[in-house]
């Protein structure tokens, strides 16, 4: 077991730990410290190595919303290319964030949506392994989010 773990790329080792952290984070979204909710630090959010840290740096716990549509496969054969589509019916959507709770750096991308642009974006992301993708939407009322669990057959971490 020990030798198998040390033979894995550093990314995969970290992922195992992060998956557990992520599982706790997704269960306990509401339990995150609210004292940090006021500050938004994009650089820290991108540098964050846990889902909880990334969420905190984005301004705190998102409200679950059925107004956000997150379209993605349930099973991704290739973790290097996972198609994700997000649209939001929330008024005043000005930012769409993609987070992956199983990744070494959970914040994948931030999209800015100026007035006149529809609250819609589609892209392809990498997933290190099984995980949950969160589409977080920022409006004047704060952060809202939808989640989608994806099983990844082959992780996209060390791939081209």
């Amino acid at each position: 077991m020990q030798s198998e773990a040390s033979a894995m790329p550093p990314c995969a080792q970290r992922r195992r730990v992060l998956q557990r952290v992520g599982a706790v984070a997704s269960l306990g979204l509401a339990a995150l410290p609210t004292a940090r909710a006021a500050t938004i630090d994009p650089a820290a959010a991108f540098a964050a190595q846990t889902f909880a840290e990334a969420i905190a740096a984005l301004g705190g716990t998102p409200t679950p919303s059925s107004q956000i549509t997150l379209t993605a496969p349930k099973v991704a054969d290739n973790g290097a290319f996972v198609p994700i589509t997000v649209s939001s019916a929330l008024r005043g959507t000005r930012e769409i964030l993609l987070l992956v709770d199983g990744n070494p750096q959970p914040l994948a991308a931030r999209f800015t949506i100026p007035p006149g642009t529809e609250a819609f974006v589609a892209t392809r992301i990498r997933m290190a392994g099984d995980g949950t993708v969160y589409a977080a939407v920022r409006t004047d009322d704060g952060l809202h989010a939808a989640a989608h669990a994806i099983s990844v057959t082959v992780g996209g971490c060390g791939k081209a």
Binding site: R124, I125, M127
Partner: peptide, 13 residues
């Protein structure tokens, strides 16, 4: 300006 993105290594090739 109609769209902007900030990306990490998690965006595919």
């Amino acid at each position: 300006t109609v769209f902007g993105a900030r990306m990490s290594i998690a965006v595919s090739r």
